[in-house]
Nucleic acid binder design. Sequence first.
DNA 1: CTTGAAGCTATAGCTGCTAGAGGGATTATA
DNA 2: TATAATCCCTCTAGCAGCTATAGCTTCAAG
Lengths: 136, 136
Amino acid sequence: MFSIGELSKRTGVKIPTIRYYEQKGLIDEPERSAGNQRRYTKAGLNQLSFIRHSRDLGFTIDDIKGLLELSRHPEKPCHDAHSIAVRHLHDVQDRITKLRRLERELKRISKCDSGYVAECAVIEALADHEICIGEH
Amino acid sequence: MFSIGELSKRTGVKIPTIRYYEQKGLIDEPERSAGNQRRYTKAGLNQLSFIRHSRDLGFTIDDIKGLLELSRHPEKPCHDAHSIAVRHLHDVQDRITKLRRLERELKRISKCDSGYVAECAVIEALADHEICIGEH
DNA sequence: CTTGAAGCTATAGCTGCTAGAGGGATTATA
DNA sequence: TATAATCCCTCTAGCAGCTATAGCTTCAAG
């Protein structure tokens, strides 16, 4: 049995965040001590690790709810888990593409060798979308 | 003189968002019609275009406040604008790196050829951080 | 048995918007 | 000029995913 502080240390999830997950129905409500403090088991630890890991990978709370639900039913077909992961992969790839375009634009913009705002390429580029390389 | 709807159409910024920017002190309060409706000038349009473009490039509201402030003082040296842009560039590059790692991980994870949750690589990988390729 | 750390609930705040209610203003047409 | 359609107004609340604070209670070590 761990306290919430113990759980926090072991998973790297902050205490208020754990309580937030509980409130959102992401983790099961743990048992309580005589004095109403949360007491977690190994199962709770595993669940939270799963969540932590999934959040690190950028899955939303709702995605994770779905994944957790699935993991509770090992006998079910797994194409749902699959499609959540694939959808998320596409999402990530999309974000990468967009950020790359941005990177190019920012690199161009920040190559300003004027000393004053009046001729600064940064300000100019922001004021005038027309002079951008591609769209974003 | 444009109405807020006109301004919205011309800049692609939604009406409530324009009002939100005003409230946040990002744009100047425009004049009002006799019936208390906002009336914008060309200057307001330019300002909002600047903001729109900057937001598209991922600058925060605070960044933009700084940039706008600078653009109002063309006689000042521009290294501040510069450092805002460069900082943001680093930020973007950082995010790209992280997302690339994620992409690799998700690609690996979503190559699941089992049919059931019990042996599904997605679920398994999420439950057990140890089997990840790198850190994230 | 005391004391200090850790936990409790409830509420509010953060960013960057978006949506809705319940009204008033403007404008185009009849 | 009347009226209907469309626009705009303010105010409030909500979204994700937390984080912080206040004011209190409980736990564990000495």
